[in-house]
Every structure is written in structure tokens, then in C-alpha cells.
Design a protein around this nucleic acid. Sequence first.
RNA 1: GGGAGCAUAGCUCAGCUGGUUCAGAGCAUCUGCCUUACAAGCAGAGGGUCCGCGGUUCGAACCCGUGUGCUCCCA
Length: 891
Amino acid sequence: MEEFSKNYEPASVEEKWNRHWKEKKYFKSVPDSRRPFTVVIPPPNVTGVLHMGHTLNETVQDILVRRARMKGFNACWVPGSDHASIATEAKVVGMLKERGIDKNSLSRPEFLKYAYEWKEKYGGIIYSQVEKLGCSVDWDRVTFTMDDDYYKAVMKVFVDLHGKGLIYRGARMINWDPSAQTALSDEEVEYKDLQGKLYYIRYSITDEAGKEILNPLTGEKGIVIATQRPETIMGDTAVCVNPNDERYSHLKNAKAIVPLINRSIPIIFDEYVDPAFGTGALKVTPAHDINDYNLGLKHNLEVVDTLNADGTLSEAAQIYVGEDRFAARKKIIAGLTEKGFIVKEEEYATRLGYSQRTGVVVEPRISTQWFLKMKPLAEPALKAVLDGEITIHPGDKFLATYKYWLENVKDWCISRQLWWGQQIPAWYDDKGNVVVAENEEAAKKLYAAQYGENNSNAVLTQDEDVLDTWFSSWLWPMEVFKGISSPGNSDIAYYYPTSVLVTGQDIIFFWVARMIMAGLEYNKEKPIEKAIPFKDVYFTGMVRDKQGRKMSKQLGNSPDLLKLIDAYGADAVRFGIMISSPAGNDLLFDNASLDQGKFFNNKLWNALKLVKMWEKKIDASLPVGDQFATQWFESRLNEVKAEVEKLFSEFRLSEALKTIYSLIWDDFCSWYLEWVKPGFDQPISADVYNKTVAYFTELLQLLHPYMPFITEEIYHSLEERKEDMCVKQLTPVADSNSVYLGEGELLKQAITALRDARVKNRIKPKDEISLHIETGNPDKYNNIRSILGKQVNAPVMHIADTAEKGNISLVIGKDKFYVHSALPADHAAQKEQLEKDLAYQKGFFTSIAKKLSNERFVQNAKSEVVELERKKLADAEAKIKAIEESLARLD
RNA sequence: GGGAGCAUAGCUCAGCUGGUUCAGAGCAUCUGCCUUACAAGCAGAGGGUCCGCGGUUCGAACCCGUGUGCUCCCA
């Protein structure tokens, strides 16, 4: 027989089962006659390693997938990663810089070679982490958003949507990332509150002839405007005031002179300006502010773009050309101050947009980009959720957010000035004519057809830009099954729609909403329940550190997953993160919960050791004997199985784990195993042993989705098995017997109370007592008396309607318990306990009595409730009587 | 500025449809145990004005209003 180590050692066990599962191809899925349960991994991007947020995510998915597999579903979990266009390109550029290579010195194909090198390295790290965590993914289905077919699918969708008029190209004010030098979508901008400064700058005013005008009301020179961005004054093309503002009514047809560069710009009048804000005069810089841009359109203003793509000042600025925008700001302030243009400075609370990926301040910029019209796609996506076709968990906490975004969605800027990604399938001739087609050949044909045979030899150049990564990942639930590149294939027909999407709430717009849009757009011919990409969305919370801070690279408070697995084992990590993870709420990650997982491993391990010790003690000739323990545990097990079933249906995974944990630790280890434990040198009946192994097996099955490795290991250690736990089917829930459950509760209560009395009276566990129970219903102890005697070391026990008084008395339920012990009893402690109980019961009695004496309660409350209260009153009365009698005995 | 959510034991949180499953769990704390599965353990115990105020109701941690404090999303 194999020897068991003192404590559970996860490392070798986890390695062994990972290899075994993989060899057996248990997690490979092909369509068959079973119902599918499909989950697509939200693609972690290839820029780094898995953080704790991913760990939570992957664990939740694995739990759902493993349980589905154990319930007879054909479970298919597709792993993959996305190319994270902007973030990866930034990393690759950084890597090149370290090697002394400038991106601009490379051709596009050369750069992409380096990018793929990066992707191979970091994508590989992520996959090995997913595997170490025990994720039961189908490794034959690994998908990357830049795979050939995937790439083609993205092209196809672009061309299709362009053909439908949903994709268009145009010059708009967009969010510009000067570091990555690309456009961003609205969602990629994060706003932060900060303390800025408002500068009041005086512009002089002239009439049409160029003669200076003074304010007739105040005699002041010029006009004062307030701005946060003095470095943009060179891009000013007007000063705007409210037409109803009397302070400025003398400025009709006047001109303002931009300081430092002395450009003359018109004064315009528009009610857009709030006279109460600042000085009531607004400088208008259409190239660098969205509101100014709109104002400029309305008033036909010139647009002067004073910034280059990299955030330095352009030739158009005339001064400080080539200086960074923030450096230029300082110099301009100095220049303005020196020349007396600055009237005052003021502290000002403001909000700035930062690039989510590079962290730099985003610059509003007018730029020609490709856009996707969102309104027509948003409407059905909103409807699907509002109609309940897709359910968001937990509760509908995020429903309002989802609804608001979709109702107010703006067109999506999908082009990025990058190389790493799907290159936009648009081709231009030298005159700027454009054709959109899936590839160059098709583009040429289309061009010839559109622009005539004469031009068929024209040189076509493909758009330099690539598409936003989310423009590929929104196809994920379909294209991992080649649903776009090869529609109607047997995989997509079987696996789509997927069952549940598990993801962080932070990408509800980036990904979840857009996946729903794409799913509905490309499955229009199907009924809605077949068109949606998933039926349920489960949002996990954010993982924070112990102090409640977000985990981030800057703070360095995110632990390294592989180190955690080395220290605790993957099962303990999974346990730790799930036990502290209420659905949808943020969780404070603390190694203490991993310790709890590790301790739990040991508890299971030691239970195994105990049961294996019994194996040697089986005596087949032994009669079945006392069956209460097994009867009770079987009922308890079924009760919990039903509970877990319900919790899973509500996606309350943390609750379910707590329930299973307590069933194993408390009910199975602390109660059941102790109850059936044979005495020293005593045999165990085959019946009890076999049932114990069967119960243990079921417990392991319940726990397996959470802690796959140790459960598989113990399952095989318990006895010879033909199949593996990860594919063993769960047994259906059976009825539980409420009589056994009630008797079990009474037994536990009596054991606890008697143990407490022993501790308080300093009776050692080895000291025997005899027990006299006075009860009106002696029969209720029939099933439990032998276990009770064993657990409280009371070889002698009398149960009758009158009892011989002992030296310790206590009241359990309505019954009086008298303990006879050779040792002197602590009367004071007993008295104190009894008096405390009495006070509680009396208070309880009074409150119930008061309730029942209230006529309106008796009239209005449901009859069951009133009946229950009457029973409570009677019980309390009986208890009070028993306690009082015991107290009287003590005096 | 608009919207959403949260406040229960020292900490992290459960608490469903208002009524013994109503004040609960885990961790932490305290006491006693080297009891042959487990000291990473066992057996016990203590600990709460359910954020403040008002209302609805026979009855409120739970429903409504309001104040305070915190978090998140959007502009």
C-alpha cells in the first residue's frame, strides 16, 4: 500500500494530472449528439503575463466548464489571445529601441517580423500560465486575432459593412495619442480629474482699419479671454462672445490680435458662450478643441492646426516650432508674462483625457479616419438585452450602464495609424479615388469596373493604417469557430451561440456590447436566441490589493501568478480567489485566503489518510449496525447538492464554494468521520466503509470544478478507478430525509453543549461521565444515543421522563441533561450559564407574547405565521420551565 | 453636471419574497488541548445601536423618503 506524505504536496500532483489530462485529450471537443456548453476565453492580449484579474476570470470559466462537462454537456472552452494593436506596437517599438533599432528605419514587413517574435514569446507565457492554473481548455482550438483565417474574416466584415454603408471615411475631430501617434476610439480615453490653471490673456482689439479700440464702458484696452491651454493661441481663428453680453456689444466687426504672433482674427457672436464663465470671452481654436471645432464649422472659421502628430508645435504655430506641447506652454506663458499679456492666473479644477494604452494626454485633432456607424447596430443589441435574450449577471447591476452607452453611442473610429494589426482593405489611386475590397486583386477589378478600363493600369496603394483591435475581437465568439470566414460550417452550427461569457466589467463597451452587435448583424437570418453570441454574461469584479487599491504595474502590488502557484499550488490559488470573490463585486486579494486554500488541501489529504487507515480494518463479517451516521450524512449531502445546484444556476460561485467547503470540513470531517470512526483496534463494517468512500467521492466531485488537481488525486488514491474524475458524471440529486436532518441537528447540539459543560467543569476528554436525560419524548434519542454517548464519553446513559439529578445540569432544547461525574462541578459557572439562557428565553418569550397579544397581528398576519409564533411561545415556555427547575436544583 | 451602486462583528462579506434559517459565515481575537487523519489541527467562547434621522406596516437589517460617507460609470 502506498505511503502518504504528512502534508499534501501540490507541485508533483498538479504536473502529473495536467500531463495525464492532456494526453487523454479530455478537453478536446468535437461536435456530437450531446448538448454543447461553449465558452470562449476573453482574449488576454499578448503584451504581458496573466495578472490576478485574468486569474479570477479564467478560474470562473474553468469552474463553469468543468461542472458542465461533469453534467453531461459537450464542453468546449476555446483559448486564445488578441494582438492588442496599440499596446503591443508600443512594446515592440520599445524592444527595438533597446536593441538600438528605430522603427522608422524598418519597412512594414520587417517590423511585423519583430512583432511576431514578441507575440510568440509572450503569447506562449500566457498559455503556459493558463495551463498551470488547470484550465480545461481545448488546446487544438487556440485562436489568435491575427491568424490567417481570422485576418480574412476581419477583411470580409470590413468590406461587408462598407458595402452596407455602415463604414465611411472622413475628417473628424478624433482623440489623438501623440505618443503612439494614432487615433483612438472614445472608449480608449480615460478621464482624470486634476488641478489645472486658467490663464487670463489680454488680446488687443482693433477696428476694421486696424485702429485700436477701447471699451467704451470701462475704458479698458482689448479683451481678456481665459484659457487652460495658452500654447494653442497660435491656432486661434476667432474670439467669441455672447451676443447678449453688453460688455462686448461694441465689438461688432472688430478684430482681435493674437498676442506674440500678431494675427488678426474676427470677433464672432454666439449664444454658445456662457457670459458667466471666465470673462465671457472665448478664444476659438477649431483645430484643437471639439467645441471650438463645431463653432468653427458654424461660423466658417479657418482651421489652423498648430500641432504635429507627435505633439510638437508645427510650422503653422510660427513660434516654438518643434517644441513639445507642454514645454511650449511654459515658454509661451513666460513670453506672454514678459510682454504683459497675462492678466492673471487662477487655479482650476479640470478633467483631462489620457490614452488608456500609453498614458499620455490625448490631443483632440482633426483627422481623416475610418468610422463605423453605430446606431443601426446598437438598436438590436440593446433590444436583445432588454428583452432578456441575454442575461447579465450578477443581477442587473450593469444593465443601466449598458443601456446608457448604447442609447448614446457615437460612431466608432476604427482606424489606427499603426502597423501591428489588420491593414485596412482600401486602395487609393494617385488622385485619391478609393476602392474597398477584400484583397488587392479584388480591389483592382473593382477599380477597373468603377473608374473605367482606361485606368485599369493605375497604381493602387493600400491604406497604410490598421484596424482597431476590438474590430477583430468583436467577432471572437463567431470566428473562433470560423463562423465568418467559413459560415455554416459544422463547428459554428454546433457551438454557436456560446453559453456564457465571463469577463471584467471594464470592457462592457469595448467588447461585450460590440460582440452582441456583431453577433446579431451576422446571424440576422436566425431567430434571436440563435443569433446572440452568448446567453449569459458574468461580470467579475476587479481584483484589488488588501488595502483596496487597484492592482497595477506602477504600484507593483500585483503578485506573480506562477510564484503563487509555486508557493500554494494551483488549487489553493483557485480556492483563495474564489472564496473571496462575491459575484460582480471587487475583491480584496489577500494571501490569507490562499492559506485557507492550502489548509483545506491538507484537510482533504488527512481525511484521505484516515479513510485509508480504515481500509485495513474492514471486517466483512461485521453486521451493518448503527446506521444513523450514514443515513444522516446521505441526507445532508443531498441537501447540499440541491443547494449548490441552485447557487450555480444563479452564478453564485463563491457561495457555492463556501457551502461545499463547510460540507466537507464541518459535516464530513468534524461530524461524520468522527461518528463512524472505529475505536482503537476496532474493526469497521464493510457497509460503513464503502459508504464513506462513496460519500467522499461525491464530495470530491462537487469540489472538483474549483480544485481539480487534489480532487483527482484523492479520487484515485481512495480506490482503484477506471475513469478519471474530470470526466466522471455527477450523480443526480436525491431527496433528503428531514427527520434524519433534524435528529442530526439535535445530536450536534447535544454534543456541543455537553462538550462545553465538560470544558467549563474541567472534565478531561478521557474522564468518563454518565448521562441522565429527562425528556417528555425519550424516543427521539433512539437513533442518536449511541453516537452521543461515544462523542461525549458517556458509557452510561439513561433517558426517561424523570431523571436522576447529577452534579452538572444543563438544558438542551426542552430537555434536562444531568451529568454525573466523579469530579467536583463548578456550580457558579453552571449557574451563570443557566441564568444567561434564562434571560434570553424570557426576553424571547416576552417579545412573542407581546406580538400575540396584539390583535392586529393576529388578524392581519398569515395564519401559518401566527401558528408558528404560538409554537415558539410554547417552546420558550417549556424551555424556561426546564431552566428554572435546573437552577432550583443548583441552589 | 448626469447615472448606478455600497454602508451589517476588529477585517472581508452573506442575509432571496418584510415574520426562528434573523441578527449569520470566514478570517482575526480569547480559553483549553502534543485526544494515533490533520497544531496548516482539535474542542469551546466572546464580539454587532444592521451608517444617522423620519415614514409605511400589526411587524423593518430588508420597503419609501432624507442626510452623511465611500466606490464606479458617463459628459
